[in-house]
Nucleic acid binder design. Sequence first.
DNA 1: CCCGTTCGATACGGTTGTGTATTCAATACG
DNA 2: CGTATTGAATACACAACCGTATCGAACGGG
Lengths: 200, 200
Amino acid sequence: MEPPKRRRTNTRARLLDGALEVFAERGFHGASVEDICDRAGFTRGAFYSNFASKDELVIALFQATTDRLIEQISALLPELADQPVTLLDAVLGLLDEAAPDQRRWHLISTEFTLHALRNPEAARALNKQREMFRSRLTQLVEEISRTSGLEFSVPPEQFVRLVIALHEGARSQSLLEPRKVPAGSLEHTFLPMVLQAVTR
Amino acid sequence: MEPPKRRRTNTRARLLDGALEVFAERGFHGASVEDICDRAGFTRGAFYSNFASKDELVIALFQATTDRLIEQISALLPELADQPVTLLDAVLGLLDEAAPDQRRWHLISTEFTLHALRNPEAARALNKQREMFRSRLTQLVEEISRTSGLEFSVPPEQFVRLVIALHEGARSQSLLEPRKVPAGSLEHTFLPMVLQAVTR
DNA sequence: CCCGTTCGATACGGTTGTGTATTCAATACG
DNA sequence: CGTATTGAATACACAACCGTATCGAACGGG
């Protein structure tokens, strides 16, 4: 069917995969092109045949992860909206299931965020992605609240922003002190209170 | 009075200062020893005369910022505890005043956190520092709640953890989208609700 | 005032990492 | 089949960075 430039796209994918791993382990600057190639089982020749530079790979990687994220939540959304599940469970569930490997995802996304904070270009891209993700979550919240007759006293998007902020901050603590802060504990103890307060 | 090895400590301080700036701009791995020296107005000779390696400087820098943080909050604590200020204002005020330059502080501390997540040694140090900071905040909360007759239905430390998590997550959003999320907005809209819910 | 020490600058060697140019193998295609 | 094209491996040139060894100036003590 498709012209077998499949080989090319495959090595690209493997390189991106390797980059993801190595970036998680050593960070953006800490990982050399060679490290990435080693991990993917190629030499630098393959790399430069597919990407112009490490920066370009970073962009491509960001794009790829973004795409995959969209795809995943698109698959999860209907499933969650249908089942009669509480609003919080749905939202927190979505946040978790979207990132199967919490630790690696946290490392990578933090790295991206740091990069964006120093680079307006990257900031725009990241904000766009986050905006997309947030709006999906907001839709979910609105939908569930509608079907269960809840009414918000603050804009749902604001509430979603809170959930995301808390989730990210809490995840950081959980990863630093897994024994003292089990994953999700902060969210599960405090978010119900907030939800109680903002709905009627 | 003191034996004038003052020169040495002074250049050390300037190097640490330079490192702070450069690390904020380019990140840990992204900053070369030479970058740091340039910024501080020295050559690499001075650097290696004062530190064995970049890693050692990182440790020293972490120690220095930790010390300064302790000092600052120690100075702020009595001031806040005395004045008849609401609990939330006190806590949020402390979080803010402890970091005059929000942006730089966020970059640096995120960088440290990332480093700690990859390095058990660093994780221990960071956790110790955070534990110290958290316990100060908890003391403040307990003190104020006592004088104003509030009683918590959750451990105050847990509440402090929430405040910190939210604060960090919110700061990230504020820095990425200053126009959409003014600094402190998430905290100020939602924390009062939580406080309402956990006290009686 | 002179001598010894301290501390930062300079000079150097070695390593690591990047990017390009070239080669070689596999596969598509006539 | 043989040839052309594609894609990854190899080789190479070059820059950045690290760490050490050495030098020289300032400064303190006698």
